[in-house]
């Protein structure tokens, strides 16, 4: 069966002499891994359409349950090549791609996350310097897939607390924590920054200028939360110096 959709290239993996296994995040099918014949040859009809971040109209052929359908066509909608041409910007975008690969299940469409990724990449292309973009994406992605850490109100009784427990994925009050170690003491500013980021849309992020300390605190909390949930360090973290 031939299927057509739009997708963003998340990752490519060389296979055989000149073939590629290309992982897309698509609007209609979620994450799809496809097999592309000979795109690494200089005269390939795929051209640069299979480079990471490229937003394309794609067609792929295979049974509905085929593990690796064959990619038959990829026409570029937007290449996002300006993100790829800057080292620092590409490193930020790589973190976005890695998080998407980790948290999005295969063949499970989520139009919200797809739209969020497209709008985040457009925003990064317009202004890659805005430090909140990756944080914003991370929070919204975690919210969509059900792994958002609870920063407001004790996860057990709903009471007030600023003690975040990694093992609970939530703030827990002293009465409910029963002596378990607190991982983070959250400042009120971080709680309000996280809740604001969840409701603001991507286009408005560049207008917000929170204190660097707050951004670092939230960033560190989310990094540790992601590490706890996935039981591994993000590979792109090695590049943060």
């Amino acid at each position: 069966m031939l299927r057509r959709t739009e997708g963003i290239v998340l990752k490519t993996f060389p296979f055989g002499e000149a073939d590629l296994i290309v992982t897309f995040l698509t609007g209609s099918y979620g994450i799809v891994k496809t097999f592309a014949k000979s795109p690494r040859k200089t005269r390939s009809r795929f051209g640069s359409s299979l480079e990471p971040l490229t937003h394309s109209k794609i067609s792929f052929w295979g049974r509905e349950d085929a593990a690796l359908p064959r990619l038959t066509q990829a026409d570029i909608i937007h290449p996002f090549d300006t993100i790829r041409s800057g080292l620092q910007c590409f490193l930020k975008a790589s973190e976005v791609l890695e998080l998407t690969l980790i948290f999005m299940p295969e063949r499970d469409a989520c139009a919200g996350v797809y739209g969020l990724l497209v709008s985040t990449l457009h925003a990064m292309e317009a202004d890659c310097g805005a430090g909140l973009r990756v944080l914003h994406y991370k929070l919204k992605l975690l919210d969509s897939v059900g792994y958002l850490p609870r920063l407001k109100g004790c996860g057990r009784c709903g009471g007030d607390s600023e003690s975040f427990h990694l093992s609970q994925g939530s703030v827990v009050c002293d009465a409910c924590s029963k002596g378990s170690a607190v991982t983070f003491r959250l400042s009120p500013g971080v709680i309000s920054l996280a809740s604001n980021l969840l409701v603001w849309d991507t286009a408005k992020i560049q207008r917000i200028k929170p204190a660097d300390g707050l951004v670092m605190e939230l960033s560190r909390l989310l990094d540790e939360h992601v590490k706890y949930v996935t039981e591994r360090e993000l590979k792109t973290r090695a590049f943060r110096g």
């Binding site: 990752k11 990471p52 590409f90 490193l91 973190e95 890695e98 792109t236 590049f239």
Partner: peptide, 12 residues
């Protein structure tokens, strides 16, 4: 170089 940088694959 014996490879190329790839943040997503952790090649530093």
């Amino acid at each position: 170089l014996l490879g190329a940088l790839s943040p997503i694959d952790g090649i530093t």
